[in-house]
Amino acid sequence: MIQTLLGGLKYTQISLANYQVHDIVDQRHDDGDWHAKPDDYPKLMTKLMMADLIVFATPIYWYGMSGILKNFVDRWSESLATHQHFKEQVAGKQVILLVVGSDNPRMKGRPIVSEFGYICDFLDWQLTATVIAEGHRPQDVTTDQNAMARLNQINQKLIIPGNMK
């Protein structure tokens, strides 16, 4: 899905599976400073803050986003608590959400779309496009003609002068 969506564009792809991001330990109501475990979260947040467009891609796992993505999103509470102007620093980004699953994904993926809608509203991001595709195994999504057509349509809108490979 990502290759079709971003074909012909220059981009940085980040797979959260290649990074270590510890679970959040909610310390918002504790006395003293927030104590974060050393991991790759700060590096990932630096990359996120630099991006104008963010594409989140997730399979549907038990009617929600993948645990690794949820863990990363949960850690944003840490950034809100430890960086005074976090919301202002990340505001204005565009987001595209890609969701894939089997067993009626267009219905069962709706809660993920709603969740990202709320996230985007809170962070002053614009959820510019969502694609929910059907696929059970790797590459199955390529047979979902509706999803592939939508990805190509979005790709054509993203191709602008200066953003080509």
Rank of each mutant, 00 (worst) to 15 (best):
K70L: 10
N71A: 00
D140S: 07
F116D: 15
I2D: 05
D144Q: 00
S102Y: 15
T130Q: 10
D23N: 11
F56V: 06
P111K: 09
Q156A: 05
Q153D: 12
G64Q: 15
G32S: 05
C120M: 03
A149V: 06
G64K: 15
P59C: 14
L127G: 10
A129G: 07
M1A: 11
K70P: 12
S79I: 00
D26W: 03
H85W: 11
Q94T: 09
K108S: 03
R75H: 00
I54Y: 02
R137P: 02
H136Q: 10
I96G: 12
G64D: 15
K43N: 14
V21G: 08
S114R: 11
N71D: 01
K70V: 06
W62L: 14
M65F: 14
H136M: 10
K70W: 13
D31V: 05
L5M: 06
Q27D: 02
P138N: 03
D121F: 07
P42T: 00
N104C: 11
K47Q: 13
M50K: 14
G117H: 03
N71S: 06
Q145K: 05
H22I: 05
Q139F: 12
H29A: 11
T58L: 06
K87D: 15
K47T: 09
V99R: 05
G162C: 12
V95H: 02
S114V: 12
G135S: 13
D124P: 02
Y63I: 14
E115D: 12
P105Q: 06
A147M: 04
